[in-house]
Design a protein around this nucleic acid. Structure first.
Lengths: 153, 153
DNA sequence: TATTGTTATACTCTATAACTATA
DNA sequence: TATAGTTATAGAGTATAACAATA
């Protein structure tokens, strides 16, 4: 294990996954907001849109579980996306409690812009960090293992 | 580079540092809140307290910069900590605009409890992930490089 | 009874602008 | 003029409880 506890000065913050992932997340979302460049989408809206595009007819509960939020949050996220015509909620015929959410043509139209922004973020993050390309790939793999997202999306 | 863009299904969410660090951060803070076990401290309060303990007489602006937040947020964080007698704000003699923040004896008293909680979080996170101990260490190092926190703090 | 989506509420944190006191 | 800390405000996201419609 990496040096973890230092009883003399308690200087172990940078060895905590929680703290370090918080710093990473903050910086990534800052850059992403910049790169979205007036697209006016929040990070959760973007993530939900991408997830739905790749998993059509998914339920709101399933979206929430997979992208790491709650059904409660999904209501607001989908309201915002639906209001702009990017997704559609359709009552499931088999189970009328369920909403089968789908991305509209308009929604599909902006996916490339989101990808461009995402790519720009990775480029900038890599440039301002001390990571090589190989280390970057390693980091992604390790984070996927940490969050049990190796195979799932 | 790891498979990044997949133009046919846009399934690249799990390759984004922003998304994966968000998932990591969420899970870590959930576990940490549990492990704090009624200590009633927010993540930022804990991080600030640990940072100040390790960097006495640091200014509020400096704390904010190092732990990844804003001076604005520091006001509320330090108000909460000061109210409970865990830190003290002292006007700097050289520059009377500055506050030299220091951890009180009471503050030092709870640092071990925080460490215990932090350690428990790491243990649980490791157990519920698919990471080996060596991979965990690697992950920490890579995150430090990503956020340029290799030497500082 | 249990589940899906929803509404409501409280809190943490981010972001921004403007203010004060000091320099 | 500039800086350290502060206040105020708006918005995003988390957490929890309760509700309606449906199973």
């Amino acid at each position: 294990m990496v040096s973890f506890f230092n009883p003399t000065n308690y200087s172990y913050l940078t060895s905590l996954i929680g703290h370090m992932s918080g710093l990473s997340h903050l910086r990534a979302t800052q850059l992403f907001t910049e790169e979205l460049n007036g697209l006016e989408l929040t990070p959760k809206q973007v993530i939900a849109l991408e997830f739905i595009a790749n998993n059509p007819t998914v339920s709101q509960k399933e979206i929430a579980a997979h992208i790491g939020t709650t059904p409660t949050v999904m209501v607001g996220v989908l309201d915002a996306l639906a209001k702009r015509g990017l997704v559609e909620r359709v009552r499931s015929a088999e189970d009328r409690r369920r909403h089968s959410v789908a991305v509209t043509p308009a929604g599909h139209d902006i996916l490339p812009k989101i990808e461009t922004a995402a790519k720009a973020v990775e480029t900038r993050l890599m440039a301002e960090s001390n990571l090589t390309s190989a280390e970057w790939d390693q980091l992604i793999v390790l984070m996927q293992k940490l969050t049990n997202r190796e195979e799932k999306l």
